[in-house]
Write a protein that binds this DNA or RNA. Structure first.
Lengths: 104, 104
DNA sequence: TTGACATGCAACCATTTGGTTGCCTATTAT
DNA sequence: ATAATAGGCAACCAAATGGTTGCATGTCAA
């Protein structure tokens, strides 16, 4: 779980996921196109995404194809975000109450 | 948005949010209790959470009270996680197809 | 078979991060 | 008034991060 959060903490990596979400199964070179980064930097980002299981790769000849794995993102939603969804209104209420108290 | 992801990338900070989720409005010292960290380290983490608007604070005498702001977490769910929810099944299908192709 | 192409590996670098220690300030309680 | 309590500030440090360059390897096409 920690690896997933860490992987998602970088805007470049999130944009790589966006690109794969737009078109799945891209090669490394395709994913590099238009990015202000060297291929090696992208490789490192993809390795981190792969480590976090957000991306799975397959070798096809000399190409490496990258596929999005949506499961960890889904789990963050289920196991983490939803926990804070419960009690959200209560928390907002307490916040509002404190803001009003401040103005007394 | 980037600040929120970055803030959530650290396990200590997520556990601070957990603690506030369990009991809202705690002081700095309360939040420090039982943590294997100096008070100053916790202060820094809370500053990052505050910067990302995940926590809002109020001064009450010499104490600083910390309140959870659930809005940014909710937004990550709405604006980010849900985007990948759409197309999740398609992505899983492609993944499965590639895994099977590999065994040919 | 040889050159071009796709990717991998490793060393290196600057900056950021997560933590520390030491000291200062402000508020409360005795 | 003064001591104890709650928190703030700043300098410092080691390790992690995000990036680079240079070179090596594996695969495809002419």
């Amino acid at each position: 779980m920690d690896e997933v959060f860490k992987a998602l903490a970088d805007a470049s990596r999130r944009s790589l996921l966006d690109r794969l979400h737009a078109r799945n199964g891209q090669t490394l070179n395709e994913l590099c196109e238009g990015l202000a980064m060297t291929r090696q930097a992208v490789t490192k980002h993809l390795a981190i995404l792969e480590e976090a299981n957000l991306v799975t790769t397959f070798k096809h000849g000399r190409e490496k194809l990258h596929y999005l794995n949506p499961v960890p993102i889904h789990q963050i939603g289920e196991r983490w975000i939803k926990k804070f969804e419960r009690g959200k209104l209560a928390a907002l209420g307490e916040l509002k109450r404190q803001l009003e108290k401040r103005d007394e």
